[in-house]
Every structure is written in structure tokens, then in C-alpha cells.
């Protein structure tokens, strides 16, 4: 359930870079993060078709290519940034508009590119892109045991809200 306005942090989050953002990851690979362009649909589909099933959370990304395509159509109605290693999509972060003048956030990094500092750059670039496009309220849910993800979200200013439930619920004001 998305949060009420009163459940967001009082203050706004810090500053974030606007994409494009280029850097070398911890493996020395040259990575570029750019806003999604509709010509890049197939490359993003390819990343998700090859996604490790163990990295799935709360039913996403979907398991079959057909459902991945439907799901991405929905996500690409929102704001999206993609991390590239050359012409290969290796990470994707998205802000999907909801019903309360808010956006739901999710971030995915391909298993070959995890633990290399890409997620941290990707979420900051997404929030920079969101702020530049007038996004104010951002929320997400995350599995409680996923301490790496919770730590990442806290590092950019997300705070926990809501009653106890299976997933941890977090919100941030841009």
C-alpha cells in the first residue's frame, strides 16, 4: 500500500546527479547510465530474460519473455534509467506513477554486474532524473531480509513507514 502524505519524511532528500552519468565500476568496466530511450526496448528485454530467478522479488521481474514485455510496457510509461556496459543493458531503475501523486521505485542489476557499485550510482541517477521531471514523492517495498537493498535505500534518504507487514515499506521526498 502506498503511503499517506503524512507518512513521508519531513525533509527532502539530498542532491542527486542527473543522467547521463559515466564511471568505471569496481571491476574496472566502463558503465554509462542514461534515461531510457524507446529504441532500447529489446536490449532491456534481453537483460530481464537472462535475469537470475533467485534475484526475483515479490513476483518481479516476471519469469517469461512474454510477461517481461507486458511488464516493461507498464514501467516505461514512468521514468526510467538504464545502465549500459557498451551496448549491453546491465541495470535498470524505474519510477512508476501511482494514484496518490506519487511514484513507486524499483531497481534491478544483472547478476554479472552486482556488487560492483552500479546499484548505488543507478538509484542516484534515477532520483536525479525524477527530481528534474517534477517527481516529489517516492515509495517502495523491500523484503526485510534483504539488508543490502535496505542499506542502499537508507543511504539515499528513504525512511521506513507503515505498520508491520511482510515487506518493509519505505518513503522519500525529493
Amino acid at each position: 500500500m502506498s503511503p499517506d502524505d503524512s507518512e513521508y519524511p519531513d525533509g527532502t532528500a539530498g542532491s542527486f546527479p542527473e543522467p547521463p552519468v559515466s564511471f568505471a565500476d569496481r571491476e574496472g568496466r566502463d558503465i554509462e547510465i542514461r534515461p531510457y530511450d524507446e529504441d532500447e526496448f529489446e536490449e532491456v528485454v534481453e537483460m530481464y530474460v537472462d535475469f537470475d530467478p533467485a534475484d526475483r522479488a515479490q513476483g518481479i521481474p516476471p519469469a517469461t519473455e512474454e510477461r517481461v514485455r507486458d511488464w516493461l510496457e507498464t514501467l516505461f510509461e514512468g521514468l526510467n534509467v538504464v545502465a549500459w556496459h557498451g551496448d549491453r543493458a546491465v541495470g535498470h531503475a524505474t519510477l512508476v506513477p501511482g494514484g496518490n501523486d506519487d511514484h513507486e521505485l524499483a531497481i534491478f542489476v544483472h547478476q554479472d554486474y552486482q556488487r560492483a557499485g552500479i546499484g548505488s550510482r543507478l538509484i542516484r541517477a534515477l532520483l536525479g532524473h525524477g527530481r528534474a521531471n517534477g517527481v516529489g514523492k517516492v515509495w517502495l517495498t523491500v523484503e526485510r531480509w534483504n539488508h543490502a537493498a535496505v542499506g542502499l535505500y537508507e543511504s539515499v534518504g528513504f525512511e521506513t513507514y507503515g505498520a508491520e507487514s511482510f515487506e518493509k515499506e519505505m518513503a522519500l521526498r525529493l
Binding site: Q58, E104, A106
Partner: peptide
């Protein structure tokens, strides 16, 4: 239910 993102969210009764 599913969130705008498509995440499955169990209701409190089911939990």
C-alpha cells in the same frame, strides 16, 4: 494485490 510496479503485496488477513 499488485502495486503499480507489479509487485505482489499480501493483505493483512492473508499474512
Amino acid at each position: 494485490q499488485r502495486s503499480p510496479m507489479g509487485k505482489i503485496q499480501l493483505g493483512h488477513i492473508a499474512e
